[in-house]
């Protein structure tokens, strides 16, 4: 048995990461378009909130609480809508299609015969692709924040930015693990393209990607806060909006990080069972 230094083994995943990064750079136009796709939901939601916050019958003042709805002022709600949509695009996965395709077409074979871990490979590649997008998104987000500051008076602290970057990194990892588990359903189901989209909408909603979780009422919010999904969109968004106290940012990051353990364990277990099925059934 050849003795392998850990750095050597790590290098294959670093290389996978840079491969994902370069792949993302090749497809930067694609990413730009996906970003443009985020524009219409933002407009629709902004229009909806503008309507709901408007004074008069049916508006916020009609419900009694003059300036806030679900605990958000109008400016905060607009900020949330824009940032949550951007975060949701940014953490959005796509590898579940590759994963499913690898399982169905047997492309998984080429990884099984090589001394590389498929999970590690996909994870590294995903993070690589996302870091390329994140740089680009930073600029878009900064522009959006500047507009929001000017139009809606949204403030921004340095602490919020640092917390946001950390929360975003955590969101990548958690979202990867969640969609990895979803993608592995391909071991059992053959046509799951539609399932992916259905699951994605449910998960995005449960993550606070469409509305703040407080929209779901006290009980709904309590349930959703007990699940890991909110750490993928709602938490980073709230941190950037400055709605989370500094101490709670640190606490949130810790709780979110703790979620990695059970999700990673689940991901590993589903993979092991699925793979056993794959090599036994073949393709």
């Amino acid at each position: 048995m050849t003795e392998v230094s850990p750095s050597r083994a790590a290098r294959k995943y670093l290389r996978s990461l840079s491969l994902g990064l370069r792949g993302a750079l090749e497809y930067r136009i694609n990413f730009l378009f996906s970003l443009l796709g985020a524009v219409s939901p933002v407009i629709i939601q902004t229009a909806l909130w503008t309507c709901l916050y408007a004074p008069g019958p049916g508006g916020a003042s009609a419900t009694g609480s003059a300036d806030t709805l679900f605990g958000y002022t109008y400016a905060q709600m607009l900020g949330y809508t824009v940032i949550a949509n951007i975060v949701s695009r940014l953490v959005r996965t796509g590898f579940e299609y590759d994963l499913n395709n690898d399982i169905r077409s047997g492309g998984l074979d080429r990884f099984l015969v090589k001394p590389i871990d498929y999970f590690g490979f996909r994870m590294a590649q995903f993070i690589g692709a996302k870091s390329a997008e994140a740089v680009f998104m930073g600029a878009v987000l900064a522009a959006c924040l500047a507009v929001l500051a000017a139009v809606a008076g949204l403030g921004l602290s340095a602490l919020a930015v640092v917390g946001f970057v950390l929360a975003l990194a955590l969101a990548f990892v958690l979202n990867f693990l969640i969609f990895w588990c979803v993608g592995l359903l391909g071991f059992w189901l053959t046509e799951i393209g539609f399932l992916f989209e259905a699951v994605r909408i449910v998960i995005i909603t449960a993550s606070g990607g469409i509305f703040p979780l407080s929209v779901f009422g006290e009980r709904g919010e309590a349930i959703l806060r007990a699940l890991p999904f909110r750490f993928t969109i709602q938490f980073p968004t709230e941190v950037l909006c400055g709605r989370v106290a500094p101490g709670d940012v640190a606490l949130g990051l810790c709780v979110g990080a703790l979620w990695i353990l059970p999700l990673a364990a689940l991901a590993r277990a589903v993979w092991a069972v699925g793979l056993r099925r794959f090599v036994a059934v073949g393709s």
Binding site: V4, R8, A9, R11, K12, L14, R15, S16, L19, R22, K114, P115, I116
Partner: peptide, 12 residues
Amino acid sequence: IESFALNREIYE
């Protein structure tokens, strides 16, 4: 060449 480089790392 990129795939080759990945294989270089995979096979150490």
